[in-house]
Amino acid sequence: MSSAALVELRDVVVGYGELPILTGVDLRIDTGEIVSVIGGSGSGKSTLLRAMVGLLEPAAGAVCLFGQDLYATRPRSRGRLLSRVGVLFQSDALFSSMSVLDNVMFPGRKLTDLPDAVIQELALIELARLGVADLAERMPQEISGGQAKRVALARANVLAPELVFCDEPTSSLDPINAAVLGREFTRLRDDQGSTVILVTHDMEMVRTLSDRTVVLAAGGICAVGTPATLERSEDLDVQALFHGEPTRESQESKRA
């Protein structure tokens, strides 16, 4: 019997209202890997992420985190499960009424009994790791989009969660900021032992960082594998994502 997966989706159907976006989703994610979820626009990447972090209850199936069904547990237990998770939203979602430092200290203040001085130290360390410690006293509206993303990642990671979800972490970021985030994801996996789940369309990040990639298409998962394996896939949807729109010629030459 294998040990419980960090994230396990069993026959999940998820969508908005009566309209399912994804059906029959089965997925298992284990400790210490970086998993990218890719797919075209509207393929359900963000919907899947919302289901995995407890924001969108599936119409059917089970979403398990740390071996427990997220939506079948009582609210307090669900809170305890989610406190082991960090989430970086596509919009940085920093609390606009708090300074950068207070934003990063927030999880520590809410979810732990640590003294404020220790929480502040932790927050400053995390901000420094991401190169934004000098912004600690600023308000979120006084920093740039790239800096806000880094601050949001610092907040998501300040309590060293076992599982970090990131929704389009590099969207609208310049290459320098994207590289900073990439290095941090690698550090989370290698040094901290966290599992990082990236919902992204940044193929460069997928190729260089991912241990495994999940491809969403046609209302479900169409392929799972390492980026190197998927690069050679003959599936048209996978090809479209890795190589751009596949042509008939390229298909025929591959078959030949």
Binding site: V53, G54, L55, P75, R78, G79, R80, L81, L82, S83, V85, V87, F89, S91, A93, L94, F95, S96, P107, K110, L111, R155
Partner: peptide, 22 residues
Amino acid sequence: STMEMRQENDVLRVMGISPVRH
């Protein structure tokens, strides 16, 4: 409403903190 739109309340929810209580 602004916090809801900016996903600030979602941040609370994924920390297991209820926006109603907080």
